[in-house]
């Protein structure tokens, strides 16, 4: 044990014992049948663009959305089912060029910083209370996909939307094992540091496009 550590801990242990209060009852809100609507409303209030899609049609819808925005190159995860569906659907179509995130950031940095105008990732869940998307990036779908390109597209399945963060944590058993990085995203990057005036896209994505895959 370092000297600093042992000295700090011994000072803390020398303090008088404090009562250990019980955790009083508290329940996060629940929305019942209104869950998806709340999720959508909250995300839209955070300046996100929300679309309800089907598992089959989302690649073509996304193609149209990105065409309207004039996106010419999009980062994607070639190893995921989502990535494969996208690549298959867009093959041969008039669509943005797909840039695979298939090497380490050390080699990919220039692509991510300069080339990719958008990126598509999946969400592990959604949270209605705050309109948050739950991202658990991994080897196939790395962390920077949702951060560096100016447009972030997220696919989330309606079935994975819960009422609250507490509900998501419980349902997905987070305390049992956390990934390298778990992220909640509610809207595009923003700031109000200048005169409390909202401005979007200060460092992260300027736009957040959410595709909610409905129950089938």
């Amino acid at each position: 044990m370092s000297d600093a550590k042992s000295r700090i801990l011994s000072r803390l242990r020398a303090a008088p014992a404090r009562p250990l209060p019980e955790r009083p009852d508290w329940s996060p809100p629940s929305y019942g049948d209104g869950r998806k609507d709340k999720f959508r409303k909250m995300l839209e209030a955070s300046h996100a663009d929300v679309h309800e899609v089907t598992r089959a049609d989302w690649p073509s819808l996304l193609r149209r959305i990105l065409a309207d925005k004039g996106v010419s190159a999009m980062l994607y995860a070639p190893g995921t089912a989502t990535g494969k569906q996208l690549a298959a659907d867009w093959a041969g179509a008039a669509a943005p060029r797909l840039l695979p995130y298939d090497r380490g950031i050390e080699e990919m940095k220039s692509v991510l910083v300069h080339d990719a105008e958008a990126a598509v990732t999946t969400a592990r869940g959604g949270i209605a209370q705050t309109g948050a998307l739950v991202l658990w990036p991994d080897a196939d779908e790395p962390r920077l996909m949702s951060l560096l390109p100016p447009i972030h597209v997220v696919l989330v399945e309606e079935d994975t939307i819960t009422d609250s963060l507490a509900a998501t944590m419980a349902a997905q058993g987070w305390a049992g094992g956390m990934p390298t990085n778990a992220i909640l995203v509610s809207g595009p990057s923003k700031t109000a540091d200048i005169e409390q005036t909202l401005a979007y896209g200060v460092h992260g994505p300027k736009e957040l496009i959410v595709l909610v895959i409905g129950r089938e």
């Binding site: 955070s46 995130y101 090497r103 380490g104 950031i105 990919m108 948050a132 991994d138 080897a139 790395p142 962390r143 920077l144 956390m178 990934p179 390298t180 990085n181 778990a182 992220i183 909640l184 995203v185 509610s186 809207g187 595009p188 990057s189 923003k190 992260g204």
Partner: peptide
Amino acid sequence: TYVNMISSPRKPGEKDG
């Protein structure tokens, strides 16, 4: 907008972090 939960450095096979 972001809640960022970090539990480890980049693990083998991960491409960034």
